[in-house]
Design a protein around this nucleic acid. Sequence first.
DNA 1: CGCCGGAATGAACCTTGGTTCATTCTTTCT
DNA 2: AGAAAGAATGAACCAAGGTTCATTCCGGCG
Lengths: 206, 206
Amino acid sequence: MAYRRTEVASQRLADKRARILRAARDLVAEGGWAAAQMDNVAAKADVATGTVYRYWPSKAELCAEIVASVSERELGILTAVADAGGPPSETLVAAIRAFASRALRGRRLAYAMIAEPVDPEVESVRLDYRAQLAHCFERILRQGIMRGVFPRLDPTVAAACIVGAFMEALVGPLAPARGTGARADRHLVEEIARFCLRASIGEGKP
Amino acid sequence: MAYRRTEVASQRLADKRARILRAARDLVAEGGWAAAQMDNVAAKADVATGTVYRYWPSKAELCAEIVASVSERELGILTAVADAGGPPSETLVAAIRAFASRALRGRRLAYAMIAEPVDPEVESVRLDYRAQLAHCFERILRQGIMRGVFPRLDPTVAAACIVGAFMEALVGPLAPARGTGARADRHLVEEIARFCLRASIGEGKP
DNA sequence: CGCCGGAATGAACCTTGGTTCATTCTTTCT
DNA sequence: AGAAAGAATGAACCAAGGTTCATTCCGGCG
């Protein structure tokens, strides 16, 4: 029946869309935004250049969707951790661990999503992700302050500091080269988590 | 005499070089690397496009020199503060204050120097600046650990965290919009400094 | 005064990478 | 099977921006 056939067709359509999106995301994960040229994307998805434009009106929208999809997934996980309840200091460490360990499994992608600028149209989506990321930590911090576990600190500034700290130490260009062992990675994550924890619960009177 | 004339001529040469360099740097300070197009630079320096190429072989080398000159100045100041002696926790705060207050007076430039990627050839100079910046803080941290003021922390990771923290909170795209008053700026700097101080001297046992 | 060499000019060139579209191939329906 | 609709193709097009170079300008020297 026509009904069935339409469904199959639209399924195939969605599949191809997803395939192209995945190809583009993989390219970004390998070489950052610069590697995601339309010709490359098409080649990686086994599709002609023009075909990509059947599914997205422009490169900017394709890139925006990459950010949006990655962002949705990561924020979902992070939010779940942040809202799980329990002592704020443990929540904070858990959140950092969750985010960091995932970021380590794709540093280049994480860097591209959080830090690497792109063209203006994509940038706003990226900044939004970043802001929501910070907001997650801000909520944890507010919890801690309300319960008196954390000292009086400006949670907005502190949240930005936390995001910046692990961004720089974990996925930034200054971070230890890719390919260091799992042991080194674990050390790094723990060290960052401790840094942020101290910054959040410490006294701060020299 | 010929001697005098040669000297005058080369002085004029150096002057023009400096003028172009300053023009380019100002453009970066206003609109980041994207604003530093050769046509723009030439126009801002009241010079024809081709003239720029009499003084630098390529855009990359011009940009590299911008980074190098800014970097030298800032690192000089920061190093002086870091090596001045005194209690490490005070030194740390002083260093952050010194760097941050200067960065505030030219956020866009600071962001371009520390965070915004450029083409590969310039990038290496920029990363070097960043590394030296982190190294400055690392030295302060080591001092503190040796003297037993700071807990056992990995100074390399912690230094990266510090750089990342103020980068993000102070000059990053998430930072409060430009033009907030001097009072807000001061609050921001102090809040960042306290964050880093707590992270450095805190106990870190939840 | 007329010539000469170096500096300045800026329009033209070239490369890179996003976008388009006339053509070809596939699938579906009769 | 044959035609119509939809999807795919990839070479050509276009814009942006860095670089070049034939030409012009200018100050000093014989």
